[in-house]
Amino acid sequence: MQIFVKGLTGKTTTLEVEPSDTIENVKAKIQDKTGLPPDQQRLIFAGKQLEDGRTLSDYNIQKESTLHIVWR
């Protein structure tokens, strides 16, 4: 499925993911596209910070959802 990651600059990155992907895995995909290391990424969805060990489905993140990224 496709999801979007929007940064503070307003730039949006598209990712191809599975609902079973962990947040850690998603951060690795973001690094592949942007070069930003996972330890500098904070992902937010529906006002919650996403924890590395959880999956996208744990947070009810579905296709075409938009996550927000904040740099540490």
Rank of each mutant, 00 (worst) to 15 (best):
T13N: 06
Q31I: 03
R72A: 15
G53Q: 10
L8H: 10
K27G: 01
R54D: 04
I3P: 01
P38R: 14
I3V: 06
K11R: 10
A46P: 01
L15V: 08
K11L: 14
D52T: 05
W71D: 08
R42C: 09
G7M: 12
D32Y: 13
L36K: 06
D32R: 14
L50F: 01
G10M: 08
L67Y: 01
T9D: 14
G47W: 05
F4H: 10
K48E: 11
L8W: 12
T66A: 04
K63N: 15
I61C: 01
D39R: 11
E16D: 12
P38L: 12
D32A: 12
S20C: 06
P37M: 07
T9K: 13
F45R: 02
Q40H: 06
L67G: 01
T34E: 05
T12D: 07
L67C: 01
N25I: 15
Y59G: 01
M1E: 02
S20A: 09
K63A: 15
D52A: 06
V5I: 14
V5K: 01
V26W: 00
E51Q: 07
I44A: 05
T9Y: 14
D21E: 12
I30P: 00
Q31V: 04
V26F: 03
I61N: 00
V70N: 07
K11F: 14
R54M: 12
T66H: 15
P19D: 07
N25E: 15
V17I: 04
K6E: 11
E51H: 08
Q2S: 09
V17F: 04
R42A: 11
D52P: 07
S65W: 03
L56M: 05
Q31D: 03
T66Y: 08
I44C: 07
M1G: 02
A28K: 14
A28D: 06
G7D: 15
K11M: 14
T34S: 06
F4S: 04
F45T: 02
K11C: 07
G47D: 06
T55S: 07
K27R: 05
I3T: 01
S57P: 02
Q31K: 09
E18V: 12
L43E: 00
Q31E: 08
K33Y: 10
I61T: 01
S20T: 12
D21N: 07
R54P: 04
K48Q: 14
L15A: 02
I23M: 03
F4E: 03
R54A: 09
I30K: 00
G53Y: 09
P38F: 13
W71N: 11
K27W: 06
Q62L: 10
D52L: 05
S65R: 03
P37H: 13
N25R: 15
I23Y: 01
E18T: 13
R54T: 06
N60G: 12
Q49C: 08
L43N: 00
K11A: 13
T55N: 05
E24A: 13
P38A: 15
T66S: 05
I61G: 01
G35L: 04
F4P: 01
Q62C: 05
W71R: 12
T12E: 11
A28M: 14
L56H: 00
E18Q: 13
T55D: 03
S57T: 07
Q2R: 15
V26S: 00
G10Q: 07
L56T: 02
K6V: 15
E51F: 06
E16V: 09
G10A: 09
N25C: 06
N60T: 05
K33T: 07
K29E: 03
